[in-house]
Simulated scan of single mutants.
Amino acid sequence: MPYNKDEQQAFQAAQQGATEAFDSYESIVKDSADYGAQLKHLTEEVNEAYQQINNALENASETQRQRLEQYQQDLQKIVNDVNQTDI
């Protein structure tokens, strides 16, 4: 199977986007005065990561697809946690 540069670049962008979203989530301080701004930034990071993952899924190898789907599940856990915290 020939190396597909676009496939690899899309996967790496999705991987980086997911990592940035995870890092943003880990850095949130819920009792902080700027929690709202942190939450807004996290929302932007998560949305961007979802877009990058969906883009990468279009041409992903099976191994990449499994990793991307795991990123989606992990991002959903973040969304669920944030939504529960805000109730």
Rank of each mutant, 00 (worst) to 15 (best):
M1W: 04
P2L: 05
Y3M: 07
Y3E: 05
N4Y: 00
N4T: 03
K5G: 05
D6E: 11
D6W: 01
E7G: 01
E7N: 05
Q9N: 07
Q9K: 06
F11I: 05
F11W: 05
Q12G: 08
Q12T: 11
Q12R: 10
Q12F: 10
A13D: 11
A14K: 01
Q15M: 09
A18L: 03
A18Y: 06
T19Y: 03
E20Y: 04
E20P: 12
A21T: 10
S24E: 07
S24C: 09
S27H: 12
I28C: 09
I28W: 07
V29K: 11
K30S: 03
K30F: 09
D31R: 06
D31H: 07
D31N: 11
A33V: 09
D34M: 06
Y35H: 02
A37Y: 08
Q38G: 08
L39I: 06
H41Y: 08
H41V: 10
L42A: 05
T43Y: 06
T43Q: 08
E44Y: 01
E45G: 07
E45T: 10
E45W: 04
N47I: 02
E48D: 11
Y50R: 03
Y50F: 01
Q51A: 06
Q52M: 05
N54C: 05
A56Q: 03
E58Y: 00
E58H: 01
N59E: 08
N59D: 12
S61Y: 00
S61H: 00
E62F: 08
R65E: 11
L68Q: 05
Q70T: 14
Q72R: 07
Q72T: 09
Q73S: 13
Q73A: 14
L75N: 12
L75P: 14
Q76K: 12
K77A: 15
I78P: 15
V79T: 15
N80I: 13
N80T: 14
N80E: 14
N80D: 15
Q84P: 13
Q84V: 14
Q84Y: 15
D86A: 15
I87P: 13
